[in-house]
């Protein structure tokens, strides 16, 4: 590799040499570097490592799974601007997922699956690509199969209203990584929420058909809203230790915001009953529907077929 660029040819070559700064590149990751390189990942005093790791996984899985679903809209949205908007929302969530999964792995490597010897996959990718559906801790709202654009609008609205309310409080986390992810995430989620809220109002106030579709989507997704505010024992322990947020405590704040959107859209609060878990278990417990297994099969199959893949 030349040290000094002397010709146009060398300049051209530098695009590749730039990529080859490191020795081995895991073939399927989003990046080549540890997203937490140099970040203080010391576990705060009195915090149980497994609790912190599992809590970070929950938040990370929410964003990873939701990112994947929203990402499926890329090249399929009704127009170019919304295509880019949805792709950007997916990208923000993927960025959050990387940091959160990496944080989980740094807190307690027992959560990271063991890979075949010689695999260069970093821990965040081991977590994304080599876990089975029951190991995922995401809320079920994130994993549903995509519907029409109204469905995407309602799903992004419900997800981001809830997550923004959680992140506004998570900024106070004693864990430096979680507080930083939240401080950054708040800016991103506020945009996602406002984007979805404007479309919610637009579709509700549009044609009879757009209103019908919006309300159908809202009634279909509403049963999964209460699950977002259930307190899992890990969330309770993380909140108790000052690193996490008990979602039950932000329900009122989230519903106040949601009611503003409903009022502007002239849509009544849905009365559809909550979707129950299976023997009381829901997404946070690893209880998922078939859509997540199918999604993971597609997302993970290439990485699993080539666990040592490098380029």
């Amino acid at each position: 590799m030349p040290d000094i660029h002397t010709s146009a040819e060398d300049e051209h070559e530098s695009a590749y040499s730039g990529l080859l700064v490191n020795d081995a590149h895991w073939a399927f990751g989003t990046d080549f570097e540890d997203p937490l390189a140099g970040v203080d990942t010391t576990i705060p005093d009195g915090v149980d490592a497994a609790t912190l790791a599992t809590y970070a996984l929950m938040l990370g899985d929410d964003s990873l799974v939701m990112s994947h679903r929203i990402g499926e809209w890329t090249s399929n949205a009704p127009d170019l601007e919304d295509d880019i908007a949805l792709s950007n929302i997916a990208l923000d969530l993927l960025g959050q997922a990387r940091l959160l999964l990496a944080r989980a792995a740094k807190a307690d490597d027992a959560v990271v699956p063991t890979l075949p010897e010689g695999s260069p996959a970093p821990p965040e990718d081991a977590l994304a690509y080599f876990r089975e559906a029951p190991d995922f801790r995401n809320v079920r709202l994130a994993e549903l199969v995509n519907g029409d654009f109204a469905e995407a609008t309602v799903r992004v609205l419900l997800f981001s209203v809830w997550r923004l309310a959680v992140f506004e409080r998570l900024r106070e986390s004693r864990d430096h990584v979680l507080s930083a992810v939240a401080a950054k995430g708040v800016k991103e989620l506020a945009y996602h929420r406002d984007y979805a809220a404007r479309w919610f109002v637009t579709l509700a106030q549009g044609t009879d058909e757009s209103r019908r579709r919006l309300i159908t989507a809202y009634d279909a997704l509403w049963p999964l809203w209460p699950e977002l505010f259930d307190t899992h024992p890990v969330e309770a322990a993380a909140a108790e230790a000052g690193v996490g947020v008990d979602p039950a405590t932000v329900r009122e704040a989230a519903e106040t915001v949601l009611d503003q959107v409903l009022a502007a859209a002239d849509v009544e609060r849905s009365e559809a009953p909550r979707r129950s878990g299976v023997l009381g278990r829901t997404g946070r417990d690893g209880m998922h529907g078939e859509p997540l297994s199918r999604m993971l099969a597609e997302m993970q199959s290439v990485a699993r077929a080539h666990p040592r893949g490098q380029w």
Binding site: G18, Q96, K184
Partner: peptide
């Protein structure tokens, strides 16, 4: 980082 998922970050780092 500018945005959490900004794809330019890896390029900046490598540069």
């Amino acid at each position: 980082p500018t945005y959490s998922g900004c794809p330019a970050m890896a390029a900046m780092r490598d540069d």
